[in-house]
Amino acid sequence: MSTATQTMPSVERVVTPGKYTFGRIMPEALKYFIVITLAISYAFPLYWMISSALKDDPQVYRIPPVLVPNPAHWENFINAWKSDNFTLYTFNSVFRYAVPYTLFTLLSSSVVAYGFSRIRWPGRDKLFYLCIGTMLIPYTVTMVPLFIIFKHLRWVGTYLPMIVPALFGNAFFIFMLRQFFMTLPEELSEAARIDGASELGIFFRIILPLAKPALAVVALFAFMGTWNDYLGPLIYINKYTMYPLALGIQKLRAMMSQVGNAPLAYPYLMAVSTIAAAPIIIIFFFAQRTFIEGIALTGLKG
């Protein structure tokens, strides 16, 4: 196993120091021109979301468009939030879905990853390849039969179809954690085994505490996946009082377009979208390294 987890050994192009000739400055200028143009176009939609959240209707309709709203209507955030039961939707997103899913995933995926990495047994690697192979199965194939199963179990209308499978581990997270467990020295386990520790004891007392960074990556991605999930609740949740935030936003949009063009339809939609996107963006800035390394890990070891 290479040490690809340590990213950012900045590999720069081999540039020998020399005079600033035309032939050297032009490619640099062109490069910055391209990068900045790309950055502006990539950042624009989210900038537009946040700035439009602060507009009133005349500012939305004005031609040419208003880039910086003045005055900024901060009260839009509060009024948009109050225009529907968004506090309840957020509660559902977090406590009915994201938190149980993340806890279940952390526990189950780490147990399974331990079995796939820290114990040697015949057939282990074959089964592991089967496990990561399941990631290639299109979700559309299991979507309908799973719905039929959960319908028979009378779980439709609850979050159980989305959180109970998390108790059985998730191939993606098992893969991530296994890769991490493999990097821990075997001597740690050997020493504990000689001292008579059981595998479960080694798992809980030695490996898990050392795996905190990897567990943080899994928690981050699991939380983000559930917070952002739309399709799962779309299929299984059918009561407004059970809606997660994602469905609540779409409900607001439907309400706004039902009455023709409701006043402040777009500012409100943008305000609620900003609030829903904010935790993800904030978490990203606090845990940028964790994010980037986690993503890089999945690709490089694939």
């Binding site: 979301m49 739309y230 935030l245 469905l247 936003i249 979208s273 993800i280 980037i292």
Partner: peptide, 23 residues
């Protein structure tokens, strides 16, 4: 720059959908 290119892929899809609908 990396953050600017990466963030659109992690914001909730429903938020992106609303913004693009508006744009």
């Amino acid at each position: 720059f990396r953050a600017i290119f990466y963030i659109p892929s992690i914001v909730p899809a429903v938020c992106s959908a609303m913004v693009w609908l508006f744009i």
